[in-house]
Design a protein around this nucleic acid. Structure first.
Lengths: 211, 211
DNA sequence: TAATATACATTCATGCTTGTATGTATGCAA
DNA sequence: TTGCATACATACAAGCATGAATGTATATTA
């Protein structure tokens, strides 16, 4: 029983990626063997090596599957209605708040996303071939901070902020706040410390900025 | 050449811990073999297995060496002059700012601390025996947040804060801010994004709170 | 000073993982 | 319908890494 159709092969590929995510999440990336992934996906290592060069490329495929569409949606949520002269434009601070809430909401609702974040933040060692991933993350981060800054500037123009609050500093502060929240949200697996009150923390963070 | 004196043995033990930290930091914990650590320390695996049961116990010893004294100093810095009626008591907000600056300063000046943070945050997979470490970190975190809250409450009593700012929310917000800063500080190895402006970010974060 | 515990070094057996090489049956194109 | 490429499964060789077992020379103690 071999040589499936193209669609079957794509399904197999997906099953392997899904299996990798789940085994990575329970055993950690380095302690996961390709045989474990293959078994969990219902195939053998032959299939894995057919679709991916090695564990590293499988890891990248798994990561991109969650993060590439995520970056796409980011712009939509953050920059939507960015023109304040338009009617129906959302309050800038509310837009940032909405974006943060949406991200947390995605973690709550999508197991794929949750597992991938968990792997990236506490089940993966950023050395050698994985070290480049850190640079990518840092790079994306600076992109996010710039978008925050634009919106905070907009808020300042609308006189929504305290007068001595600098948009750039606010942006980085929000970025650091949310970075910390994501890290602790993910690690707070029983939910008693951060998961159950993430929304209020976000609301409070934004409230601090309002005039 | 064997059987050193007790002091020699303690020196050997320290050398092994130091070697472990450095090799962990460059190769990641899971990719580091005990033989690599031993060689880097100028001994053989026999010495490592004499002083430590396995890699996990060596990891814990390395971690405690940096974090246990760090927790001790925390109380000193944060809770010093906590009685606001005393003369010379430092302004509460300045005390939090000072604590955050001191922590960043420790990372800048002590290679041991910097390497250990780097290992804990991006060169270690928190699974199986290491999963408990995450719980410890979470537990220590809640302790820190409580101390922040006490001090913010003190600041509120002194009327240093904006009236609608809640000490508890401010405390968690600061905690998340600093968690994020530490993570990005450590990952920003070339220093262009966070390391070179950490102090200003901290100052701005505290400034946002002042009335 | 003899006996014992210490502080390692050396050796060995074992298992796991990887990468590759090969086998094979089927979909698809000419 | 032949032939080739595809989509895997199976088999093989090699390299670590681990843990335990053993060896050994020296502190330490009685």
């Amino acid at each position: 029983m071999v040589r499936k159709t193209k669609e079957d092969a794509e399904i197999t590929r997906q099953r392997i990626i899904n299996a990798a995510r789940e085994v990575f999440c329970t055993k950690g990336v380095s302690r996961t063997s390709l045989d474990q992934i293959a078994t969990h996906a219902g195939v053998t290592r032959g299939a894995v090596y057919w679709h991916f060069k090695n564990k590293t490329e499988l890891f990248h495929a798994m990561r991109e599957q969650v993060f590439l569409p995520l970056f796409d949606r980011m712009d939509d949520t953050l920059l939507a209605n960015i023109d304040p002269t338009k009617p129906g434009a959302i309050d800038p601070l509310a837009r940032i708040e909405h974006f943060l809430l949406e991200t947390i909401n995605a973690l709550n609702e999508q197991q794929e996303t949750r597992q991938t974040y968990e792997i990236m933040m506490s089940k993966c060692e950023y050395v050698d071939e994985f070290a480049t991933v850190l640079q990518q993350i840092l790079h994306n981060c600076s992109g996010i901070a710039e978008k925050y800054e634009t919106i905070y500037q907009e808020a300042k123009n609308l006189d929504l902020l305290h007068p001595n609050h600098d948009p750039k500093q606010l942006a980085v502060d929000t970025h650091l706040f949310f970075t910390g929240l994501l890290h602790l949200w993910v690690k707070d697996s029983d939910g008693t410390h951060f998961r159950n009150q993430a929304d209020e923390l976000i609301a409070a963070h934004i409230k601090f900025r309002r005039k």
